[in-house]
């Protein structure tokens, strides 16, 4: 059982800001993902929850109790690291047992718990090995076992899958989500991979420049982005952001014309449209551009169009093929257009 509140969290090293202002309320048993580019403050925030870093300002509150002055080793959180951080001189068995030993769990209990945890991540046969004799995926599972063995208040996972190859990453992702649901332990998961965030999270916290840009469920983040940063960060390929002018309720930009806008605005604006909300049309359409690149992936085709000096991504049918420089017409789904103030980057609703 653990509910975590971060209130007014700041972290500064001299003049360097790590985290500027973070307020989050993490519910019990929630899997929350901190998502953002490197240097956005997500790992620093997590380390402050773990107690490995002290906040310059603000409070870390766990189940109503202020944790700021409580040492990392007394916080009862378990952490999983990008580099696995297995103790190289110990066997896998000893690695998994280490937190139990540090917490003076009775010896008879230790063995049972270690074997249970190892079985949960299917490592039962490898307990006698040293970490160096394991593959990357096995090491990460061992690190997971070490985290779950003592049933902590909270899991903190710092890019745990970044060192694995794509196929393994997907398998491990499912396993992590499954374990978290099974164990019902509040989890904070840090990643820069938006697919990981979308697939794992109950809620996503998008960070940039030490500030939270948006907090919401994956659906909210995807379909209702608060600003251009969130819009551009989520989705693969990301949302097209097209700068243009609005005049007489009509959006105009190189190659793009869009009448009957749902917003009342006048002047420069940024139009956001996702590649999956574009459709190749025979003629007419909202966008006219020249084919710049065609990338078939099997289940669909990525089509890149050039309009003016801007490249626009479109997801086309899987059989769509075209020569380069052919003129192409595209319509946008009018229900799924986003407008942003180019000055502030904030959404215009």
């Amino acid at each position: 059982m653990a509910r975590i509140e971060l209130t007014g969290i700041q972290k500064r090293w001299g003049n360097v800001w790590g985290v500027r202002d973070v307020n989050i309320d993490i519910a019990d048993q929630e899997l929350i993902v901190f998502l953002g580019p490197s240097g956005c403050g997500k790992t620093t925030t997590m380390r402050m929850i773990a107690g490995l870093e002290d906040p310059t300002e603000g409070q870390v509150i766990m189940d109503g109790e202020v944790m700021n002055d409580i040492d990392a080793r007394d916080r009862d959180v378990a952490m999983v690291f990008q580099g696995y951080a297995l103790y190289p001189n110990m066997t896998i068995y000893e690695n998994i047992r280490f937190p139990l030993r540090m917490r003076s769990v009775p010896r008879s209990e230790q063995d049972r718990l270690v074997r249970e945890a190892a079985d949960m991540v299917e490592l039962g046969d490898l307990l006698d090995r040293k970490p160096s004799a394991l593959s990357g995926g096995q090491r990460q599972r061992a690190a997971l076992a070490r985290a779950i063995v003592r049933q902590p208040q909270m899991f903190l996972m710092d890019e745990p899958l970044s060192n694995l190859d794509a196929k393994l990453r997907q398998a491990m992702r499912v396993q992590i989500k499954h374990l978290q649901r099974q164990l019902k332990i509040t989890t904070v998961y840090v990643t820069h991979d938006q697919i990981e965030a979308m697939t794992l999270a109950d809620r996503i916290v998008i960070m940039e420049g030490g500030l939270i840009q948006q907090i919401g469920t994956p659906d909210q983040i995807y379909s209702d982005p608060a600003n251009t940063f969130v819009a551009g960060f989520i989705g693969a390929p990301p949302m097209n952001l097209i700068e243009g002018q609005v005049k007489d309720n009509r959006f105009q930009s190189a190659g793009v014309t869009l009448p009957d806008l749902p917003i009342s605005w006048d002047g420069p604006v940024t139009l956001g449209v996702r590649p999956e909300d574009c459709r190749v049309a025979a003629d007419g359409g909202h966008l006219i551009g020249q084919v710049y690149g065609v990338e078939p992936t099997g289940d669909m085709t990525y089509l890149t169009l050039k309009a003016g000096d801007r490249l626009i991504e479109v997801k086309a049918d899987r059989d769509y093929r075209s020569d380069l420089d052919v003129t192409c017409h595209v319509t946008f789904d009018p229900q799924r257009l986003y407008f942003f103030d180019p000055k502030t980057g904030q959404r215009i609703r």
């Binding site: 773990a50 107690g51 490995l52 990392a72 080793r73 952490m79 951080a85 280490f98 540090m102 070490r146």
Partner: peptide, 18 residues
Amino acid sequence: IPQELEDAARTDGASDLR
């Protein structure tokens, strides 16, 4: 020695001397 190793031990409940 990677810092991670020490962080892991600390969150696992080990003191500095340990």
